[in-house]
Design a protein around this nucleic acid. Structure first.
Lengths: 373, 373
DNA sequence: TCGTTTCGTGAATCGTATG
DNA sequence: ACATACGATTCACGAAACG
């Protein structure tokens, strides 16, 4: 795991510097970032402590105890202390980012307003705020407020006039040929995806991979370098590796670093063809097959075939198919291969799963059950 | 339209002050709010401007006036000016609010992070951030970013320990018996609701009445006073009148004031019965278990048990329970037997009646019906 | 084997009145 | 100020247990 790569820094005349790709830098993230050269990474994704400021214990109506985030890394003495911390890491992130790089930060109402204001003060330019609408949030057990059912992501460029990357077509493809909106409905991280050690969660705030999948697909290119200053158990690294992006992490806790390395080791990069995203307007899928892919129900790279196994195609990361020279939506590729006037890709294409052959429509049904709100 | 009401200010010894209910105060909102007594309104709803062409609203830190037309400032100056403006009106709003009053602010990513941070700095305590998810947003025509499909509302109390009002039951009822979440899906203001004059919009950012309806129903009581410092064409006033709330507005533009008065004039208050909402049990009269026993609804000697028949207890004549060595209130005995942190005896304990097993809460409901008349 | 029920749990700023 | 008593309050999903 890990490789050292010589990169050419932005300023001419400075010596070549080594970039620790695929490495998790130990210790404080500000110090760690100081060791990285200026203008060397394409994207920063940051999931900083939220400064939750929780009071006493909380019990569910059935009397069971709620396992809260009480870790020391989320404890700050005051807003001032949190602001100083935020300004420090944002400043380093800004230095390390390329001029056409971008920053993502995720947070909740406890911290995101402070992060957003400081980020603007430092010269970052907000491109969007994104709402992650959780399909299965924790309820408000006491009936005291509205159920806190979302978190917020900020997406910012280096400045008002700065360039940035946005894969508009890939996002539109992923969203059933409608423009991707600023509100994303995704489930929280649970089930098989949640890292556990002896039955207990390894990290209290592990993020769902689908979230990172959408962020990286939307705002990076293949081969780009992604830096995560609060790496945790490495969701960013895992998804980056899968999507053919390079990554660097910072993480203070050795336990998290160990878990992350182990997790990313197991992750397999997707095929070149699965990663390539839609560029042409002519290759438009007509349905939200992309959402089913994103949800992990049909992983990119999966081989699809018709019932008679006459035709086959490969699923790509943005929910398009590739079959030889043919690319496009599940419907388009099915239609073209057969030379038919039309084709319902959902029933035409099949996949093998646990030794069983099923139409991909089965995955759509599962997705609908999962995301329905 | 409009009435003058004498209210008793919070501080004893100060003379009675007139509260301009149903009036739109002209001029700058900070000056207008200064004319209102301290701790006199129950709710502030604010939809502040966030373009930086604020003209008369903006002053520099040294007090000098900013002329938006002729002055050229850089990004830092404009943030500073906006922050000063925000701090000014929030400070006045805070003074005018009752100790158990609350504040709502709506904004977009251009301004809401500054507003949120300043609001926290002033001592307001965030209760929720609410996402208004627009069902029909304006598309991003150039395909350069995600479709900006939401706005953000902040709901804050006067402080960490401050009381506030939340009609939990009303919100749950409004949401088909599920807790109301922090993401609200509502259409933008259009069609018949949109005020127009000769085919053109009267106000560029008129908010949908459904948004105010939910805000006022959730966080005010009938008769409460609602202040809107950026009244515009009076959506807040119209919905307040409909729901039987009092209102005060501030608005600089005479054209908007005229349109608002005209609009609110036409608005009809709903019937008393239509306004009344589902009441939580908290607001029902308290019933002592002893009174239910005394009334003969649960005779002394009755055997009580939990749903799984794991525990049992006997009702005594004074309304206490006995279970082995444990004696005490229905709550205390339930709590102690289970070793739980707390227990609601009304729903925990059951009894058999006419061959049916029912929670003893059923007896409390019968008691309430009996004493009501 | 399969459908049904139960149980556990998730970034949560989660009470109020009385003495 | 603090302690005590009363009693109000949950949604979705996945895994395990059950029949």
């Amino acid at each position: 795991m890990g490789q050292l790569t010589k990169i050419r820094p932005a300023q001419a005349g400075t010596p070549e510097v080594v970039l620790p790709l695929g490495r998790i830098l130990p210790g404080d993230c500000v110090a760690a970032m100081r060791s990285l050269p200026t203008a060397s990474v394409d994207l920063v994704f940051a999931d900083p402590p939220y400064n939750l400021q929780l009071g006493g214990d909380l019990n569910r109506p059935d009397g069971s105890h709620v396992d809260a985030v009480t870790d020391h890394w989320d404890q700050f003495d005051s807003f001032k202390a949190y602001d100083d911390f935020t300004r420090d890491w944002l400043t380093e992130a800004r230095r390390v980012l390329k001029p056409d790089g971008a920053l993502w930060v995720i947070g909740s109402y406890h911290n995101i307003y402070r992060v957003g204001a400081i980020l603007q003060d430092l010269g970052f330019w907000l491109l969007n705020d994104i709402v992650w609408r959780k399909s299965n949030p924790m309820p408000n057990f006491r009936g005291t407020r509205f159920t806190n059912a979302h978190e917020t992501l900020l997406w910012a460029s280096q400045g008002e006039k700065a360039k940035y990357h946005f894969n508009y077509r890939a996002m539109k493809t992923l969203n059933d040929e409608l423009q991707m909106r600023s509100d994303w409905v995704l489930p929280i991280c649970s089930g098989q995806e949640r890292l556990k050690e002896g039955g207990t969660k390894v990290h209290p705030t592990q993020k769902p991979e689908a979230l990172l999948y959408r962020v990286l697909l939307a705002t990076t290119e293949k081969g780009d370098v992604v830096l995560d200053p609060f790496f945790g158990t490495g969701t960013t690294g895992a998804v980056a590796k899968r999507l053919g992006r390079q990554w660097i992490g910072c993480e203070r806790e050795q336990g998290y670093r160990d878990a992350a390395y182990k997790r990313i080791e197991k992750e397999l990069p997707l095929d070149e063809s699965a990663i390539s995203t839609m560029q042409s307007r002519k290759e438009q899928p007509r349905v939200a097959f992309g959402a089913v892919v994103e949800a992990g129900l049909i992983p990119p790279g999966t081989e699809l075939f018709d019932k008679k196994r006459q035709w086959r195609a490969t699923v790509r990361a943005d929910g398009s198919l590739e079959s030889g020279k043919e690319t496009g939506s599940i419907h388009h590729v099915g239609k073209t291969l057969q030379g038919a006037p039309s084709c319902n890709g959902w029933t035409f294409w099949h996949m093998e799963r646990d030794g069983e052959v099923k139409p991909i429509d089965a995955a759509r049904q599962m997705y609908l059950l999962a995301v329905e709100d």
